[in-house]
Design a protein around this nucleic acid. Structure first.
Lengths: 380, 380
DNA sequence: TTGTACGCGTTATCAC
DNA sequence: GTGATAACGCGTACAA
C-alpha cells in the first residue's frame, strides 16, 4: 500500500533553504545549468539529492502552459474489443498473505497467463500503433500518456487537459466531441474518414490494399465466388467493403449488398450467418475479411463446419497482426505499417513532421499497405 | 505542425463568465455535480462545451497535490536493448510533400516495417509487462505515463515529479537514485534484488524456474554436458546462473565459473565464445540460456557453426516471449507471467494490492513461472 | 550571477 | 446553492 506516512513533497523552497540560495537558483540548477556558477549549481543539486527533491510537473506545467506530454487515447469500446480476453482476467488476489513468513509466491494458476498471453489478444492493431507512437516519443525524449474513457465531453476534456497533443483511435461520432479541443491542442485521428474538421489524420490506403487481395484471388486463384466478412462501423471497414465490391464489379461478378456480420463485441452473428450459408450449400470459395481478427474467427467457424482452409474455403485478412503468422494455415493478409503510423502521429503532434502546405490545413498522411501472401489462400 | 495559431486554452474564468457564474461553480460542475442545482450545472457544462473547455491537469495537480497518473519508467539502456532494431529505423520523411495535390501516399518502402515488425524485437519482456500495467490502469480508470531516461538524478527526479507512483525496470545501481523518492511516492522495482530500501518489488521465482529446466534436461534428456549463456548484469541473470550451478552440483556435474558471455549491447562476445568452444571440440550438449533473446541468438550461432538444434545441441531459454514460439525449432523455455506482474505493480502503486503486514514494510511479490516444453530441447 | 515578486488555473475553505 | 479568496510549486521578468 501507499498509505505509509509520506512526508510532504519537498519543494524549491526547501532546497533553496538547504542550499542557502534563492528559489530561482534552484530552478536554474535544473532547467538552465549553464546560467549558474559551477559552485552554486553543485550545491543546489547536492541539497536536492539530500532532500529527495522532485520538481513538481504540475507546477511547471502550469507556469509554462504546457505539460510536455503527448497523449494516446483509446475509447473504452475500442479497448474492450482489443483486450476483451484480458478484461475477463480475474483480479489477482492480495499480493501479500499475512500468515506467511517472507514474500508470498504467487502460484502460476492465479495469473491467468494463458488468457492474457494469447497472441490473438496481443499484440493487435492498436498495440502495434501504440508501440510506434511510444518509440517515436522515446526518441524525442518526451513522455507518453496512455488513457482511455468514454466519448463524453467530460472524459475527453479531462484527457485533453493533460497533454500537449493527442492521438486518438476514434469511435463513431467522437470526431465531433474532439473538434472542440483542436483549437487548443493538435489532434491526430487514426483511420478516420477524411473531413475538414481541423484534426490531423493518419490512415492506410484501404483501397489499394483491398484491390491487391482481390486481384490476387481473382487472377492467381481464379476465384469466382466471394463473401465479405466484417462490419461497416468504421471508416476502414467501409473503404474495404467499397473496394471489394468495386473489384467484383470490374470482374463482372455479382456481389451482395451486405457483408457477413462479424460482430466482435456483443452477440456474434458471423458464425450464425456462415452456418446459414453452409446449410444452404452456398458457402463461397473465398471469405474476404475486413480484419485479421475477423479472419481468424472465420477460419475457426469454417473449419467447425467441416470445410478445409484453404482447400475448400479461402480466407484472407487485413492488418497484418502477429496472430496471423501463428495460425494454421498462416493468414494471407494486407499488412499495415502500424508502427510507422504511430510514429507519424507522434511527429505530427510534436511538430516535427515537416511543413504543412498552407496555413490552417491539416496533415492527412496515407500509408501504403502491402500484400502478404501466406497459406490461407492456397499459396505457399 | 502544431504551429497554427492556437487560441489560448480556455479556463474556468472564461467558462464562468460565459455561464454567468463564479469559477467555483464551474469547478463544482465538473468535480461535484451533485452539489450544484441542476440548472446551473447544465448552464456551466453547456458553456464549457461551447468554449471547448478542458480543465488543466497541471493546475488540478498543483492544487490537489497529486497528478492521478501512474508511471512506468525504463532506463535508456533497457530501451536500447529491447528496441534496438526499431531505434535504427530511419526517420520518416516529411509527411507532406508540397508538390503533390491532396494527401501524400507514403510508400511502403519508407516505413521500415520489416525492421519494426520483427517479432524478435516486439513484443519482448518489457512490452508484455507494460501491457499488463496499462491494462490494470485502464481497469482502474487511471492514465499511464510511459517514460524513459538516464539514471541521472535530474532525469529520474523529473519523472518522479510527474506521477503518483512509479514502476521501474531498474538498471544497475538505479535503486540508490530511486530511494530518494520513495518517501514521497511509492516505487515498484521489477526483477530487482531483494533489499530493505523502501521500494516495493515484483519479480519471478528464478530459482524454481531454472530448477525445472535443469531437472527436465537432466532427467528426461539425460544431458551431462552444459554451458550457461547469459550475462550476470541483472538480478535475474544472477539468480538463474546460481541455480544452474546448484543443479549441476547436485547432479554431480562440474560447471564453469563463468557463463558464456551474451552481450546484447555493444560488441557481442557470445558468438565468438561459441566459436571457440566449437573449434576446441567442446561444444556442450545443452546451452542453457538466461533469456529467450539470448537463446534465439545462440540458436542462430550454433546453427551457423554447423550444429543441428536440438539433435546436436539443445537450447533452452527463459521468459516466454512470443518470438520463442515462432522460431524453428520452437523454444523450450520458462514462462514468466509478465502481464500479471505488470498488473501487480499497478495495483501496488494504486494502493489496491491488499494490506501490508506491518507498517513501513514493502510488497515483495514473487511470481511462480512455469516450464514450457517445446521442440528446442528435443521434445515434441 | 543571484534574488524578488508575480502569474499560471485549479481546488478547497470559508462566508453568505 | 453560490461566490470570494487563499493556497498549491514553479518559471521568469526584472531588479539588484
Amino acid at each position: 500500500m501507499s498509505e505509509r506516512p509520506r512526508t510532504r513533497r519537498t519543494t524549491v523552497y526547501d532546497v533553496a533553504q538547504e542550499a542557502g540560495v534563492s528559489i530561482a537558483s534552484v530552478s536554474f540548477a535544473f532547467r538552465r545549468p549553464e546560467q549558474l556558477s559551477e559552485a552554486t549549481r553543485e550545491r543546489v543539486l547536492e541539497a536536492a539529492r539530500r532532500l529527495g527533491y522532485a520538481p513538481s510537473a504540475s507546477a511547471r506545467g502550469l507556469a509554462r502552459g504546457r505539460t510536455g506530454i503527448l497523449g494516446l487515447h483509446a475509447f473504452d469500446l475500442m479497448l474492450e474489443r482489443a483486450h476483451e480476453p484480458a478484461a475477463r482476467a480475474r483480479a489477482l488476489r492480495d499480493l501479500h498473505s499475512p500468515d506467511l513468513e517472507g514474500p508470498r509466491i504467487i502460484p502460476w494458476a492465479e495469473t491467468d497467463d494463458e488468457l492474457l498471453a494469447d497472441p490473438r489478444a496481443f499484440p493487435l492493431y492498436v498495440d502495434e500503433v501504440q508501440r510506434g507512437f511510444a518509440l517515436e516519443c522515446w526518441v524525442m525524449g518526451r513522455p507518453v500518456m496512455l488513457s482511455s474513457g468514454s466519448d463524453s465531453d467530460v472524459s475527453v476534456a479531462d484527457t485533453a487537459g493533460r497533454v500537449d497533443g493527442l492521438a486518438i483511435f476514434p469511435s463513431e461520432g467522437s470526431a465531433a466531441v474532439l473538434s472542440r479541443f483542436s483549437s487548443s491542442i493538435p489532434i491526430v485521428l487514426f483511420s478516420a474518414a477524411p473531413a475538414a474538421d481541423g484534426h490531423h489524420r493518419v490512415r492506410v490506403d484501404n483501397t489499394q490494399g483491398m484491390r491487391e487481395v482481390m486481384t490476387h484471388l481473382l487472377t492467381v486463384h481464379g476465384v469466382r465466388s466471394f463473401a465479405f466478412v466484417g462490419r461497416l462501423d468504421s471508416w476502414d471497414g467501409e473503404e474495404r467493403f467499397a473496394q471489394y465490391r468495386e473489384s467484383l464489379l470490374q470482374a463482372g461478378i455479382a456481389s451482395e449488398d451486405e457483408p457477413v456480420d462479424a460482430t466482435v463485441r456483443g452477440p456474434d452473428r458471423m458464425a450464425e450467418q456462415l452456418h446459414a450459408l453452409a446449410e444452404a450449400g452456398r458457402m463461397p470459395r473465398a471469405l474476404v475479411c475486413s480484419t485479421d481478427q475477423n479472419a481468424l474467427a472465420a477460419m475457426d467457424v469454417v473449419r467447425e463446419l467441416g470445410f478445409r482452409v484453404p482447400d475448400d474455403v479461402i480466407v484472407t485478412g487485413f492488418d497484418g497482426i502477429l496472430a496471423g503468422r501463428l495460425s494454421t494455415p498462416a493468414l494471407t493478409t494486407v499488412r499495415q505499417p502500424m508502427e510507422a503510423m504511430g510514429r507519424a502521429a507522434a511527429r505530427i503532434l510534436a511538430g516535427t513532421a515537416g511543413p504543412l502546405p498552407e496555413d490552417g490545413s491539416s496533415f492527412d498522411a496515407v500509408f501504403a499497405p502491402t500484400l502478404v501472401v501466406r497459406a490461407s489462400c492456397g499459396c505457399g
